[in-house]
Amino acid sequence: MSAFDPLSLLKPRRKVTGISAILLPFTQAGDVDWPAFHAHVQRTLESGLTPAVNMDTGYVNLLDRATQDAVLQQTREVAGGRPFVAGAFVSDGEGDAFRPDEYARRIEVIQSHGGTPIIFQSYGLTRQSGPKIVASYEKLARTADRFLAFELTQDLASFGAIYDLETFAAVMSIPQCVGVKHSSFHREPEWQRLVLRNANRPEFVIFTGNDFAIDMIMYGSDYLLGLSTFAPDLFAQRDHFWETGDPRFYELNDQLQYLGYFAFRRPSPAYKHSAAQFLNLRGWINSSHTHPQSRTRPDSDRDVLRELGQRLGVVSPT
């Protein structure tokens, strides 16, 4: 990419497709706050974004199957036939073999609820050679009408992997694979994927998962972000500004990006507590508690988040 000019990818006045990973709220007692979840899915849909449930933002790796299925049932009820995305997650360990039957069961459950599955990585999937990884996706494609792939940085999950370009290109060529969430947290590999996409399969959607570079939408990426769960309303407004060429895009994007830098600082998985704190400050959820096994932030973060929320105009001074 040394001779490549990223500015050649710029796509001004483009309609952006936004998918927002939904935070699963918890009560102080450590139970799922279902009314708050219901309301957050609803406000995400009303903002014009597509909700994504049972994602990392929704603690999918910490939920039992019954809770994952309850999330799907609740989402189907709220969505009322509108599109949503849901994570197909298979828990395994280092050294385990790929488990296509378990993936197929999760895909079937998601599709039966009206969702589009996004295939979470696992040790069994990512620890294979490139050709075997592609063959694994091809096998899953026989059980899915359409699905999204997922490349995940190990900063967020130890089983994650960013594929080499040859493997990525082969996965992109699978007809049932209609897009990919790319979460390397780096611009250059995403730019490389955009170049490949534009040349080989223009309709394929690359959803940036880079919460440190949410302006990747300027270059032709769409997005599936955890950061947007903090403010789906403001992300929708930002997207509208970009589509209409409104210069207010830049300042709003800057403010949202600063929120992302703060929330996703190391340890990055603790961003979910930052999200709970921010949504609590907004008055959207009743508690800033997270899943009992999830990483947490210090209480002092609330003061910073309050200031950021005030700058964005969504948190009151008191």
Rank of each mutant, 00 (worst) to 15 (best):
S2N: 10
D5A: 11
D5E: 14
L7P: 13
L10Q: 12
P12T: 05
K15N: 11
I22A: 07
L24V: 10
F26Q: 05
G30E: 01
D33W: 01
R43D: 08
G48Y: 00
V53W: 07
T57R: 15
N61T: 14
T67N: 06
R76T: 09
P83W: 02
G93S: 15
A97I: 01
R99D: 08
R99H: 12
R106A: 12
I110A: 06
S112H: 15
P117N: 00
K132A: 14
A141D: 07
D145M: 10
L148G: 01
F150V: 03
E151F: 01
L152F: 04
T153N: 09
L156W: 06
G160Y: 03
D164C: 03
L165N: 13
F168M: 11
V171G: 04
I174E: 04
I174Y: 01
H182L: 07
L194K: 01
E203L: 09
E203C: 08
I206G: 05
I206M: 13
T208L: 03
I214Q: 07
I217C: 07
L227S: 09
A231T: 08
R238Q: 10
E243G: 04
D246K: 11
D246E: 10
P247H: 06
P247T: 02
Y258L: 14
Y271A: 08
K272V: 05
L281Q: 06
R282G: 10
R282F: 01
R282P: 06
G283R: 03
I285S: 12
Q293P: 10
S300F: 09
D301I: 00
R302M: 10
E307H: 14
E307I: 15
S316L: 14
